[in-house]
Design a binder for these strands. Structure first.
Lengths: 224, 224, 224, 224
DNA sequence: GATGAATGAGGTTTCATTCAT
DNA sequence: TATGAATGAAACCTCATTCAT
């Protein structure tokens, strides 16, 4: 039972016309913008309305509350996560494996970078136990994780040197990717170069998937 | 391990006596408890006071606001993080390396498990850009990360197979450990057994530090 | 004489319509009324709202706080003070001088009488160092004082028998007028008849401006 | 039934010893000091206590509330006002009259200058209708006013050129003196020199009492 | 469709005031 | 005497939310 993300409808059930849709869109954009500036929980209906140059009453014509508006944003965003699964589902044969590992890492970081603010909300809400957001997160990461587990299970090495249970290995790797991506700026602030982080993650991923250290692969840079 | 970090003082500058300290303590405990049940941002002074069987006025005698009370909790907690650094600074020679890797992972997960609620707040506040919490987090994780980087740099392998920059490798590994620890229940919910997660992380860590796959080490369990 | 000085606007920047203006007006009137009954500092938003049959929330839609509402009242009032300047700028030739002096005094007392409560606030706030109110007071009294100084300087006598500096003389006289007007009831309470106070002030004023004792003027009542 | 201003006693009826009296005194001084900095109505028990380095509880051992403490200060101050009456009761014969008028004016301004802050409270409270303070004010100004009326009635001129009723004339003059003294700084701010204000007031006073313009008196400075 | 207006509800704070030590 | 502590009470202020236009 999907929350009407696709089927637009005003709160009182009517189907909005062109002007209405534009207003709704404007409200969503302002919500997204506020999200980049303020902690989620402190975004008020009034703020969104003001930013959009409307009144709170108008907001309530399209959304039940702030949370629901954010949920719409998150939903749109999560659809984009399938892209990550595709990257993982790439070519892991010897010639291409390093390339693939690298592009997975880069893909993760880029994806997070683009959708940082909304993603942050999803993370937080999930950790706080909000079920609707949790659902979103699982749905999004599920595709990548499962794909990665399959790749590991059926992939190059008989078994991953990182462990027996492909799902556990996949979960661990995705955790690494997600956490680093989320804290990207933290590391820069710490003096570590982003490229070094990318390199390291790619090596770990590559090793865990193929069982070969990157150094043994022609296409990869030598260590040191 | 007494709760008072440094010199206690009431909001209006007095030095609290025994009774006052007890009240303060009670308030802290109730705050901590509420933290496990409710999203941080929605904890109200009134809630804490009610839970502690006092009035808001009393709360304000000891803390400026909810945030500050939580900060006190977080501070205490962060001091305990030095324990993790000690674990990392263990014996990585061939005979003991697997054991060490395992205990680091277990340590991380246990530490998080014990202080889940407060730690969650620190994470969230940090991501939302709260500088005071960010400071705490950096301080706490700094010790482990630096130690791990040193171990990697001077450790078994000439260079880690996971990369050139020891800090980047350490940062990546700590990210993995922190994220998995934080999402522990998420994985269980996903049907992955905790032991499998521990095993996988230990393997990755062990390989990155020593350059040896765990399988090659006598003390480690065989893969599969 | 409409109450809206300048362009009205609600606290959140909207331009109020008819209904809104009416509400605002009602709030102002109630504020004014309370002012006659209670010391300024103890007027609470809740009081005004209650009196106006609204909720505090509504009050805050039109004013930032009680002080600001009073400031609006004061501003309107101060504009009326220009009337006093006109009285002072009357005919001081021998035939009319006594009449003019009398009407200035009467004007002062009447003006104060009409706006006693608001004016009291202005006085108090000014003495307490509130700059906004001080500004109002200076602006209001400035017109009369300057006008009086000009009349004295260019007037009947070469120099006022009350002193060399016309501004100082004017300031002194205005002080007298303002203070007596403000303490009107105090004198009655003391057993002095108001007419006697008016008479005395007119005589002093007349003498200081024209240099002639009122007794020497045909139009004035004889002393005793 | 005088409020125990002379007879010291703690709130609970006991007679304070040396230490107690010192504390009480300290509290009074701090109250006085705060009076010069803050609007009366916003002085809190807590402020006084803090300033005096004590706790609110201690304050309540000596005073029932802030108002009462201020009342004590005012009472002490009012006693000093009898000095003004003495000045008025000086020598008004031709040789000394100018001197006397001048010293009355100077005396007024000096007295106000010294006790500005407390006096301000008395004024305000009186205007706000506070009966206890009103009583103080009347008591204080009564002596000067009555004395001045007597001097006018029995003095040099048969009748004052300023009017028939000596009390009305006296009231008017005292009003002038009080208001100018209270607003002293206002005039300076306005660019008028204090000496000019003194001069003008002395001339008016002199004329009203003696019926002679100051210029006709040998001891006075010529106009211009 | 949009939005002026109004407001119930609720948390935040601040004090005055009181005890018991 | 002095003062740590506690707290009732009251005002403040801010929103979410709802209507009627």
């Amino acid at each position: 039972m999907p929350r009407d993300s696709g089927t637009l409808a005003t709160t009182d059930g009517r189907v909005p016309g062109r002007r209405g849709r534009a207003t709704r869109q404007r409200l969503l954009e302002c919500t997204s913008e506020l999200l980049t500036q303020t902690p989620w929980r402190s975004i008020k209906v009034i703020d969104i309305a003001r930013q959009a140059g409307t009144s709170p009453a108008t907001f309530y014509q399209y959304f039940e509350n702030v949370e629901q508006a954010i949920l719409v944003l998150a939903e749109e965003l999560m659809e984009g996560a399938s892209l990550l699964a595709e990257l993982v589902d790439g070519d892991w044969t010897e010639d291409a494996s390093w390339e693939t590992a690298s592009s997975v890492v880069t893909g993760f970081m880029g994806y997070w970078e683009t959708n940082r603010s909304v993603f942050r909300v999803v993370e937080l809400a999930t950790e706080e136990g909000d079920l609707r957001f949790q659902g979103l997160r699982v749905r999004a990461l599920n595709a990548v994780t499962v794909t990665l587990a399959r790749v590991i299970g059926a992939g190059g090495a008989e078994t991953s040197p990182a462990g027996t249970d492909p799902m556990a290995v996949a979960g661990t790797l995705i955790s690494m990717l997600a956490h680093v991506a989320a804290h990207q700026y933290g590391f820069e602030f710490w003096g570590i170069r982003t490229t070094a982080m990318v390199d390291t993650q790619a090596r770990v991923l590559h090793w865990a998937v193929t069982g070969r250290a990157a150094a043994e692969v022609a296409s990869a840079p030598a260590v040191g």
